[in-house]
Design a protein around this nucleic acid. Structure first.
Length: 453
DNA sequence: GTGGGATAATAGAGAGGATC
DNA sequence: GATCCTCTCTATTATCCCAC
């Protein structure tokens, strides 16, 4: 789901009819704006920031307030901060975990709050600020919640609103912030039809706001991203007709998995980790086809060698080097089937082949930019490798340059330093995609909502 | 390392129908 | 009436990804 032009482009000077309508409403009461992607929700937020601007002028220490915007993901926070910064004359700063905000003390926060009138942050960061009492909800004049449908359960956004509610309950004179919730999809989970009104009501209560949408439906539609949907079917049972070679690889991997699970003197967690890696390879072969499976084996082979070297537990190191040796053997078996690498197209699963077909069809288009969403990081990595391979080996796919992007998570990328580097790289990837340096971006859920690509 | 949400897979409970 | 099967709904568990 992409946010459309309005949120990234140069500041809009003239608000559209429905933007004005919703803005007028939000001026008067707490509101949840329900507007489709590309309709310029951020612009309404900007108008509102300007409307309440007299409250945020001046020194925080001397009682001036601040405007806070919270969002769900790091890229979204940065993007919103940038967009707002372009349209208002105040200092706008974005905050997320990668800046080390977790370790900031009161003094550091005070300098930040003193310096910047508009703070855009990941919901968890703002919640931490509230919990540490670095700022009180009453010192905020306007709280903007982006993708506010996340304000449910125990999500950080919900916790922020619980803080708001408790202040409201305990102190009737407290000057609470105006709430502005922004969302394109009010409910984002499977539910029964009869549950909808309850869920909507819950959201209104959690946000202490009223759900509103524009009367000028046609006008909104004109400015909303309208995708044309085409559904392609594929045959999942094609796995059953897998080549003998693939079946052989899978039975080897299964054998290794069994050996690992039955190994003695190895911690349960370590076993689990190794089994997961083996499982990933098996899934790669089954879901994506032999070419990707082979690539996965090569990748993990190198990875395993590195890991087993750094392992202090001798039993574990032994097991890992054994697995590594068996992977090398598997990779050797693959090398014998060299033709797999000559034309990958003949060695992919059915749905990947449908995907390649779509990519192929776009070759004549003037400028193609494609986003491919996948479920796991692993397939993101493999698919982009596949497209790159095709680009280099087949003229008809010369336009299929690709990279992948996934969220940051310490579990899969070692220590915090690596994570941070990784984050920087992701930002660079996204920027270069926007510039049009390459054509296909394979992504997990990180880009699913809000991020302007 | 911890916590959270969404979702898929699984098992279990209950309703209803078919058969003996 | 007893037994078996199927369908549907629900609760639990596991997995994945993302955040700090």
């Amino acid at each position: 789901v992409l946010d459309g032009d309005a949120e990234a482009e140069v500041p809009l000077l003239v608000p559209r009819v429905y933007q004005l309508e919703l803005y007028e409403h939000a001026k008067e009461t707490n509101s949840i704006l329900v507007l489709g992607t590309g309709s310029g929700k951020t612009f309404i937020a900007v108008l509102l920031i300007k409307h309440f601007a007299d409250q945020i002028q001046g020194s925080f220490k001397e009682g001036a307030k601040r405007t806070v915007m919270i969002a769900n993901t790091v890229p979204l926070v940065r993007q919103q901060a940038k967009a707002i910064g372009q349209q208002v004359s105040y200092n706008v700063q974005s905050y997320d975990g990668s800046m080390g905000v977790d370790y900031w003390d009161r003094e550091k926060w005070m300098t930040e709050v003193e310096k910047n009138e508009v703070l855009v942050m990941v919901a968890q960061v703002f919640l931490d600020m509230l919990n540490h009492n670095y700022i009180s909800i009453t010192q905020v004049n306007l709280l903007i919640i982006d993708e506010c449908h996340h304000t449910t359960g125990s999500h950080a956004m919900r916790e922020v609103m619980r803080n708001y509610a408790s202040v409201k309950q305990n102190d009737s004179t407290a000057k609470l912030p105006r709430i502005l919730g922004l969302t394109a999809s009010i409910i984002q989970k499977k539910c029964k039809q009869y549950e909808i009104s309850k869920l909507l009501n819950d959201l209104e209560i959690s946000l202490d706001s009223i759900l509103i949408t524009s009367k000028h439906y046609e006008e909104v539609l004109r400015h909303t991203t309208k995708p044309r949907v085409t559904i392609l079917h594929y045959n999942p049972t094609i796995v059953e007709n897998m080549s003998e070679h693939s079946q052989m690889l899978i039975s080897h991997l299964n054998g290794m998995t069994e050996d690992v699970s039955s190994a003695l003197d190895i911690a349960k967690d370590d076993k689990k980790k190794i089994c997961k890696v083996l499982r990933n390879m098996r899934l790669a072969i089954e879901d994506l086809g032999e070419w990707c499976g082979r690539r996965a084996i090569e990748y993990e082979m190198e990875h395993f060698e590195e890991l087993s070297c750094g392992e202090s537990d001798s039993r574990l190191a032994e097991l890992m080097s054994e697995i590594s040796a068996r992977l090398t053997m598997l990779s050797g078996l693959c090398s014998e089937k060299e033709e797999t690498f000559v034309d990958p197209r003949a060695h992919v699963s059915h749905h990947v082949s449908r995907l390649l077909h779509i990519v192929h069809r776009t070759r004549t288009a003037e400028s193609t930019h494609g986003l491919i969403f996948v479920k796991t990081r692993f397939s993101a990595f493999l698919l982009s490798a596949l497209l790159e391979k095709l680009r280099l080996s087949n003229e008809e796919y010369a336009h299929s340059s690709s990279k992948c992007i996934v969220g940051s998570n310490a579990n899969s990328f070692g220590d915090l330093v690596a994570t941070r580097l990784h984050l920087k790289e992701q930002t660079r990837t996204l920027e270069s995609f926007r510039r049009g340096d390459f054509h296909f971006l394979v992504s997990t859920r990180v880009l699913e909502e809000g991020v302007d690509v």
